[in-house]
Simulated scan of single mutants.
Amino acid sequence: MELTYRRFDPSEGDALVAFLTADTWPFHGAAVVGPDQARRWVADGRFDGDDTRTFWIGDGDDILGLVRLMDLGDGTPVFDLRLRTRYRGRGIGGHALTWLTAYRCDHAARLGRRAVLTGRRARPRTAPGRRAPRAGSATGPAACRAS
């Protein structure tokens, strides 16, 4: 599997609505997203804007999930990671967090920020019985330091 990350374009709103409504998201506030709610989120700019970046996670032509980086302007960004059910438990989430940290570090100087996903905010929720990856060098404060 060769994972790629491609920035979401607002013109892909219909594809995003289809993605969000085609699966369940048990690790999120709303496990099921209805089409009207998804369309509102897209229309409100919840997936792309000054303080938000969203990226499709792909493998070839397949969309496996998406990762959204939010609150870019406050110095302590948070993220939203959604993987389709059939791709969960394969290490894609860990890969996505490593990629996301590198993306954040590469863009920290342009955004005027030094902090990256830190401490408890970087620790994802997981299914019962599964261990979450520990927030450490890939996501902790030492992961990215502006020189």
Rank of each mutant, 00 (worst) to 15 (best):
residue 128 P to Y: 10
residue 94 G to T: 02
residue 125 R to H: 12
residue 116 V to S: 07
residue 97 L to S: 07
residue 86 R to C: 11
residue 95 H to I: 12
residue 131 R to L: 13
residue 119 G to D: 15
residue 64 L to D: 00
residue 89 G to D: 03
residue 88 R to C: 03
residue 95 H to Y: 10
residue 71 D to E: 13
residue 114 R to C: 09
residue 123 R to Y: 03
residue 71 D to M: 08
residue 86 R to N: 10
residue 100 L to E: 05
residue 80 D to Q: 11
residue 131 R to N: 11
residue 61 D to L: 14
residue 95 H to S: 15
residue 95 H to P: 02
residue 109 A to C: 06
residue 64 L to Y: 02
residue 99 W to E: 14
residue 96 A to R: 01
residue 76 T to D: 13
residue 72 L to Y: 02
residue 65 G to F: 00
residue 103 Y to W: 15
residue 117 L to R: 03
residue 82 R to M: 15
residue 61 D to C: 11
residue 115 A to N: 14
residue 131 R to V: 05
residue 106 D to K: 12
residue 72 L to C: 02
residue 61 D to E: 15
residue 76 T to Q: 12
residue 107 H to W: 06
residue 122 A to K: 08
residue 120 R to Q: 11
residue 73 G to N: 09
residue 103 Y to L: 13
residue 97 L to G: 05
residue 102 A to P: 07
residue 69 L to P: 04
residue 101 T to D: 09
residue 123 R to P: 00
residue 68 R to Y: 04
residue 72 L to W: 03
residue 123 R to Q: 11
residue 125 R to G: 10
residue 117 L to Q: 05
residue 79 F to N: 01
residue 132 A to P: 04
residue 82 R to K: 15
residue 67 V to I: 14
residue 69 L to T: 00
residue 80 D to Y: 03
residue 100 L to I: 06
residue 132 A to H: 05
residue 67 V to N: 00
residue 130 R to Y: 09
residue 93 G to K: 01
residue 79 F to P: 00
residue 99 W to K: 05
